[in-house]
Amino acid sequence: MRDLDETTITDEVLQAISRTPDARVRDVSEAIVRHLHAFVREIEPTQAEWEFGIDFLTRVGQMCSNVRQEFILLSDTLGVSMLVDAINHRKPKGATETTVFGPFFVEQRPELPLGANMSTGVDGVPMFVSGTVCDVSGRPLAGATIDSWHSDDEGFYDVQRREDLKMRARFRADDRGRFWFWSVRPKFYPIPDDGPVGEMLAAQGRHPYRPEHVHFMIAAEGQETLVTHVFIEGDPYLDSDVVFGVKNSLITNYRECQPGLAPDGTEMAVPYLLLEYDFVLSPELRP
């Protein structure tokens, strides 16, 4: 290990790693070294730039807390989260596509009956959400659980500025795989950009916005749990989602409805929006 230079040090590090007893740890470690060393050779950073990089990653870690994960934001905004998602969710034809989980899911969401309003007390345009859940053969998945959550009409989630949970709930599909509930229309919003990831976006000339969307997590026995969003056609950030989460198959549109009888029999005194989307789950992978 004497007299190592820029042409020999990579092989020496790889040789040291080759003795790693766990095969997966060895493979991952070797790949990290190969790609990281290749990156450094390509960029040829100055000492000051290297120190800035170390400081940046240090500040990313220091920004993390029990309510904020700056490293996930970094992964999201560099497209790594969506790449990992794509690799781990290679779906069969016809199955609904996945997208990133997002940071605003909470375990303590309420379970509500079909047709309930999960945004009671929240201002906004009323939104009736409905759809079906089936498997890839078209068989309705009775009793499937449908978790949904989204922002309010100013782009904020309940956990960002409320003590009570709103605009999130779990529902159970009926015996024909159907579900429906009420809420209010969400809005596009910026990811937290007051930390080092925000500084990175500014330096790259990028905005911090996500397009308007509604989150869904859908599960049924024998099926792979689906985590996805439904996006709205015409949103100004559909083609520049800061976390690269938009897929064409997940884009739909509202149907604008006038006052009157809603699909579930509710008498509406004001205009409302109808959001319809049918979900197809893929079979659970067996070990």
Rank of each mutant, 00 (worst) to 15 (best):
R34H: 01
Q62S: 09
G61I: 04
Y254S: 04
R2S: 10
T96Q: 03
P208Y: 08
T228Q: 08
C134E: 15
L114H: 01
D76F: 07
R34F: 02
P211T: 06
V13T: 03
P208R: 10
L250Y: 10
P190S: 08
L238N: 07
D147S: 15
R210K: 01
T132M: 08
P196A: 07
F128C: 06
I72D: 06
R172G: 01
S130A: 14
E70Q: 09
R210P: 00
T20Y: 08
L165R: 13
T98S: 06
W180Y: 15
E212F: 00
P263S: 06
T77A: 02
C257F: 04
V242M: 02
E224R: 14
R176L: 12
H215L: 11
V100R: 14
E212C: 02
P236E: 00
A16Q: 03
F216W: 12
T77Y: 03
L14Q: 04
T8G: 00
R109V: 13
T145A: 08
D5R: 02
E256N: 11
Q62R: 15
E199T: 10
H37T: 12
D76N: 14
L250M: 09
G205L: 12
H229V: 10
G222K: 08
M127F: 06
T96R: 00
V106N: 04
I218L: 12
S249P: 00
A269N: 06
